[in-house]
Simulated scan of single mutants.
Amino acid sequence: MSDTEDKSLHHDFYTEERWTNWLNQVKQSDFKFEESEEPQGKEGAIFVNMEDDIILACLKIIAKYDRGQISADNAMQMLSRIRDIALAEVEPISEDADLMIDSLQTSLIGSFAACECYLTSDYDEKDSVDDLVKVALEAEGSDDIEIALATVAEIGALVLKGNDLSDKTLEEVPYGLVAEWLDGIESISAAMVGSDSYKEDEEDDEAC
């Protein structure tokens, strides 16, 4: 193992303290749904920022793997640590906040599955994202949830590889698990387009 890889293994790309800080912000926000039942304003943005923070931590790990600084196995270990923090059961805060956190965690299941699929190269670069979305929806319709998630993971891996998940495709996806998981893939895509900072070789992450 190289010194760079050893240093990365001991670096916390995301911490339980960081996650707790976000949860404390949610508590302080006294978040409530507006009549539209959509998250509004600064309070609603907290959940978006929580998800983005985790996605960027995952993308930093992927970037180190892409640069050959860490192995796929070690990247998976680092990713697993973040997943355990983000998907752990959260103490109830309020009905509205709890619904948002549950939705956020469901979305992140898609994000983590995508990163894992990318690291294991368990996807075909020739596959069409739009075709895979149809396969995922068909699987969900047949209550084959494992196949649905595995297919969403492939979609995410292709997005990480540089493929596009179009807004038009997302608009046609009915609400359900696949839609929520694809929201996590959309967050990956948005983070990749929004900034290249996660690709920089740095170890200093500021807490939220």
Rank of each mutant, 00 (worst) to 15 (best):
E17Q: 15
E186P: 08
D196M: 12
N49F: 13
G41Q: 04
D201W: 01
V90L: 00
R83I: 09
K168S: 15
P174A: 12
W22T: 03
S111L: 07
V178H: 03
E116F: 05
T169R: 05
V193Y: 04
W181C: 03
S71E: 02
E89A: 14
E51A: 11
S195Y: 09
I61P: 02
A179C: 09
F47H: 00
D204K: 14
K199G: 07
R67T: 01
E138R: 11
E172A: 15
L132N: 02
E203T: 10
V135E: 04
D6A: 01
Y198M: 06
A136R: 00
K42N: 01
A57N: 08
W19L: 09
K126F: 04
E138N: 11
N74M: 02
D167C: 07
I93R: 04
D164H: 11
E43L: 03
I155D: 02
V48G: 08
Q105F: 01
T4K: 10
E202T: 08
I70A: 09
V48L: 14
T15K: 03
D196P: 03
E206L: 13
L104I: 10
Y123T: 12
L160Y: 06
S121T: 15
D3W: 02
I61Q: 01
A153E: 07
A157M: 03
A72R: 11
A157E: 00
Y65V: 05
C115I: 10
G110D: 00
S195M: 07
G156Q: 00
H11I: 10
E5S: 14
D127G: 01
E154G: 09
S29D: 05
E172W: 08
I70V: 13
D96G: 10
D167S: 13
E206C: 05
G156Y: 08
D102L: 08
D66V: 14
I145Y: 08
I155N: 07
S189T: 08
V159L: 13
A136K: 06
W19G: 06
A88K: 09
E138A: 11
D3E: 14
A207S: 13
I147H: 09
A97E: 00
I155G: 02
A114L: 13
I46L: 15
S142C: 09
L158Y: 03
K134W: 07
M50W: 07
F47C: 07
G156T: 00
E37Q: 12
K7W: 02
S128I: 03
S197Q: 14
K7H: 10
G41L: 03
C117P: 00
I147M: 12
K27Y: 01
Q40R: 13
T169P: 04
A139S: 07
E171Q: 11
N49R: 12
D127W: 07
I101Y: 04
E186H: 14
A97D: 02
A136T: 01
D122I: 06
